[in-house]
Design a protein around this nucleic acid. Sequence first.
RNA 1: GUGGAUGUAGCUCAGUUGGUUAGAGUGACGGAUUGUGGUUCCGAAGGUCGUGGGUUCGAGACCCAUCUUCCACC
Length: 376
Amino acid sequence: MKFTLQHKDPLSKARAAEIVTDHGVIHTPIFMPVGTAAAMKGIFHRDVKEEAKAQIILANTYHLYLRPGMDILEKAGGVHRFSTWEGPMLTDSGGFQVFSLADCRKLTEEGCHFRSHIDGSKHLFTPESVIDTERTIGADIMMAFDECPPGDAPRDYATKSLQLTERWLDRCFNRYHQTEPKYGHYQALFPIVQGCTYPDLRAHAAENVLQYKADGHAIGGLAVGEPTEVMYEMIEVVNAILPEDKPRYLMGVGTPSNILEGIERGVDMFDCVMPTRNGRNGQLFTWEGTINIRNKKWEDDFSPIDPSGTAFVDTLYSKAYLHHLVTCQEMLAAQIASLHNIAFYLRLVTAARQHIIAGDFKAWKDVAVTKLAKRL
RNA sequence: GUGGAUGUAGCUCAGUUGGUUAGAGUGACGGAUUGUGGUUCCGAAGGUCGUGGGUUCGAGACCCAUCUUCCACC
């Protein structure tokens, strides 16, 4: 995997770069749509690629491990061949899922015991087993197995959690170096910087991660309940330490404004369920602000969903029709809204990249953020 | 025609021996959702208790009449 820095914004930490993987090139800053079970809910991969212009998508280790299971993925020849997505992919380690299902987990030094949310069966994830699983899935970028503590974690818990995450990280990299890719393409492993909302813990975590000379670094454990300003502060602390010549990935973030603020602070990669999950619930993102298409006010608005949109759904369908589909809970509503939203998120980061290259990112961002936060 | 049931929020229904401001689910309305269980949560709105009399300090509840819908029997 090769990371090439192309442009740096003179007035901020924003940068434009290129990541080359064995499945293709990623231009950063980039947003990565989340396809948990190796599928973008309701959207054909063809449209994810051709209409939304996604360059890399996520899948989830926890979910693929439970269904269809690793025997099937191995027989399928990995997640790319199985799902027919031929572009770059990234797998989350399942750390977040294990911890977001807190009522059915038990944490030990060895790893995490948990019960399947599907059938209640018992399982154990360890740093080693997760790396093995991610090798079998075969994504271009694998994530380390970590603990993701809540946003309001007290300091003593945050400290212990970080120490465990760091011991697990060491075991992840040991296993990573002991194993080989199964399908003939390179797989990177990104460590995840934790530390909750404590600047010194974050700084320590960022320093600790450097020893692995990884292909890229992730910032995790943010947007989990802490104030937005605190999240930005943590990004600044961490990015001051993470190397400039490697991609930085802010996990699970966020709103369009969050993403632009992250880019300004030197983040290159983002993922979030917001465009797809909120789309299924009728929230549309636009340059002018967000639209709740369920609202009665749209029932007789026959203007296009997004006149400036580039996905075919944006100008083909009216707001009134989408309002009707959402009201009727038609599957098509979720499909249209999801495709619109991920297309918008990709246009958002593409615009950011163009403005970084043009040299006017900061001024553009300040104007864009105020509009994006509006509700229409 | 006779007998029996029924009527409470848009819809489906609770509502104790008569006792504070008549509740729930669902829908409709609005908000939330940040490394996805096609999810979940929150808020506010919504009532002439079929109608009219009566008994009572007090009636959604008891009595009378009447109307609605349903069932059974002639």
